[in-house]
C-alpha cells in the first residue's frame, strides 16, 4: 500500500499540462526533421522547416506550440495498491488542469455548456480516462487534443462483403478530407473492431 495525496496528483497534472503544450514529443520531432529531408515540394519543405522551428522556439521560450490548448485528456493508470488521500481524484485532476493552463498562459477553449455557453477560462473540464492496474504507482499522461483532431474524426461500419477494400478507401478518403483543415503533422489513428463488440459496449443490452 502506498499513500498518494490529491495535491500530488494536482501538481503532476499541472506540470504535464504545461509540458504537453510546449514540448513536442521526441518521436514527433524526429519524424518532422526526417520528413523535411524527404519532402519534394517547396511549400512542403517550408512548412516542415517552420514546424521544426516552432517546436524549437516553443520548448525554449515556453510559449505554447499552438494557441489551441485543446480538450485536455488525462489518462490515469492507478495501481490497485495506491491509497489516495486528502481529496477526490476527479477534483485533483481538474485542479491540476486549471492551474497548469492558468500558470502556463495557455488558452482556455472549453465552454460551460454546449448551447450559449461561456468559456470557463481555464480549460476545465478535462476528460479523465482511468484504468486500474497492478502495483503501487499512478501513471499520468496528458494529451491536449485540438479541435482539428476531433473535427476530422470519422466512424463507419462495413459489411463483410465490402471487405478490406472499403476500409482502405474510407481511411484514405478520411485523410484526404482532413488534410486541409487539420494541422500538420497528421498522426493517423485507426481503430477496427468487430461490430458486435462495439455494439455490446456502446448499447448495453442491445448487442
Amino acid at each position: 500500500m502506498r499513500t498518494i495525496t490529491a495535491h500530488q496528483i494536482t501538481e503532476a497534472v499541472a506540470t504535464l499540462c504545461q509540458r504537453a503544450n510546449t514540448c513536442l514529443p521526441d518521436d514527433v520531432y524526429r519524424a518532422l526533421t526526417v520528413a523535411h529531408t524527404q519532402e519534394a515540394s517547396p511549400v512542403g519543405q517550408t512548412t516542415l522547416q517552420l514546424l521544426v522551428d516552432n517546436a524549437d522556439y516553443a520548448r525554449h521560450s515556453g510559449v505554447a506550440l499552438c494557441q489551441d490548448g485543446g480538450v485536455t485528456l488525462v489518462f490515469l493508470e492507478i495501481g490497485q495498491a495506491v491509497h489516495l488521500v486528502d481529496g477526490l481524484l476527479e477534483g485533483a485532476v481538474q485542479a491540476g488542469v486549471r492551474r497548469g493552463y492558468q500558470d502556463g498562459y495557455l488558452r482556455g477553449s472549453m465552454l460551460d455548456r454546449p448551447f450559449g455557453g461561456h468559456n470557463t477560462g481555464d480549460n476545465t473540464p478535462a476528460i479523465l480516462y482511468t484504468r486500474l492496474v497492478a502495483g503501487d504507482q499512478v501513471t499520468i499522461t496528458v494529451m491536449p487534443k485540438g479541435g482539428g483532431a476531433e473535427n476530422t474524426s470519422r466512424l463507419a461500419m462495413f459489411t463483410p462483403a465490402q471487405g478490406m477494400e472499403a476500409i482502405r478507401d474510407f481511411v484514405l478518403d478520411t485523410i484526404v478530407k482532413a488534410g486541409p483543415a487539420s494541422c500538420p503533422p497528421l498522426i493517423v489513428g485507426i481503430g477496427v473492431r468487430p461490430a458486435r463488440i462495439l455494439h455490446s459496449k456502446s448499447w448495453k443490452g442491445n448487442g
Binding site: A58, G62, A64, Q67, Y105, L106, R107, N151, A181
Partner: peptide
C-alpha cells in the same frame, strides 16, 4: 481567423496560429 493564447509576461502575444476558416 485566430483566437490567440494569452501573452506570457514579457511577450506581445501568445501562440497565434490559424483556425478553420469554413
Amino acid at each position: 481567423y485566430t483566437g490567440p493564447a494569452p501573452a506570457p509576461p514579457g511577450f506581445i502575444i501568445g501562440a497565434v496560429g490559424p483556425t478553420t476558416a469554413s
